[in-house]
Design a protein around this nucleic acid. Structure first.
Lengths: 121, 121, 121, 121
DNA sequence: GTGGTCTAGACCACC
DNA sequence: GTGGTCTAGACCACA
């Protein structure tokens, strides 16, 4: 997998995992790949995956069964969506609006942009 | 000056400078404070300011006159606004829309949000 | 390593690196020495090497993989030769011709000089 | 006057003076502008002109009559041409050829370049 | 006075 | 282990 500079690899991997959980590729209650397996799949040091899993565990998205592996928490989808929505409405969106304001981009211009790309949604 | 961590000091200072240029506090063609002067003003090591100035020079925002100091490039405002707009439309906005899509937030919801905060613009 | 003064150490080191890339000692895609390692090898402060590597990265000659090290960009050789040729034909050569003209050296004299040293090529 | 970065201003001014001497604008034996006068003409600090004049005096191109001013040395033209020719054949030309060789530019290519620009000489 | 470079040494996040 | 940033302090060339 290719990573972008400027954002930690372990966070980028965490994102791909939460995406897989939301999309259903990683199902609630089921085991996710082992640290080593996932590391080789991602072309990354196992320590990095370890860090990712720890982070996700702290967020209640996966849980560890010692000697067996990591499992998707039953409420993982809900947890992820909640935390992401919260971040979206309290950080990303206001941040964007603040930038737009500074640049003199009016909300009408933004709305037009939304409509011009409406074909997808 | 107080700095947030998670972002390099020299970049935060670069931002305050571009802000001053856009706001007109640092006027086009005029000299900005010397490295040492600005360093003491910001409570920071001169090397750090040096780094900031070099970066801004590479972005064509300021230019150096040997032995005299750094001066605001005549087209600095334009350069800054262009680069920020580019970042906005190619990175920030698509990023936001991607997030929204994953979270199942429709463009109509977004538009409503824009209208609800319309009082300011 | 011994350095000449009149030219920054970090630029001299950059030159030795591009030389190694062109000569093939530093192979495309492969890792170059770590900052600390190369610093001690050159008998120089790590910050100085850091500066060199940053400069080379900005010129698309090397690239960074987080936490692992710097690697020679696959097109590094090409990039280096192109930039050097550009400098040659837009700066060095016209400069020389300008000097020659001022000194009253004709192009025929120059051509004779070229032929007299032709044994090597 | 506009100066290029990367070369000291006092050296750039020295070059314009030697050019004027060679071209005859500054005649042998005659007075050249005073430090202050030339400084304001060049839009430069008098110290800088002082440095230039000292340098030129050390090269036997101008000489100082205390309280009166600086005068073009009678043999100035000859001195300048000799020193520039020496520099040309011992430094500039070999330097250029060395670069060309590294870049794989043959002497034949160079000769063609000389001919293509022959219209001027 | 100005910028520019370099060193020594520290601390941090990340792999 | 890797790079990245920052500080403190020094020295230099140049205007």
């Amino acid at each position: 997998m290719e990573f972008q500079n400027g954002k930690s690899i372990f966070l980028q991997i965490a994102d791909t995992i939460t995406d897989k959980v939301v999309s259903g590729e990683f199902e609630a209650g089921k085991k996710i790949p082992s640290v080593r397996e996932f590391a080789s799949e991602m072309g990354v040091n196992p320590n990095t995956i370890m860090r990712t899993y720890s982070e996700l565990q702290a967020m209640n998205i996966i849980e560890n069964k010692r000697g067996i592996g990591y499992f998707v928490n039953p409420e993982a989808q809900q947890v992820i969506l909640e935390s992401k929505k919260r971040e979206f409405f309290t950080k990303l969106l206001p941040d964007l609006l603040r930038h737009a304001e500074v640049l003199g981009i009016t909300r009408d211009e933004l709305k037009q942009h939304l409509e011009s790309k409406n074909s997808k949604s």
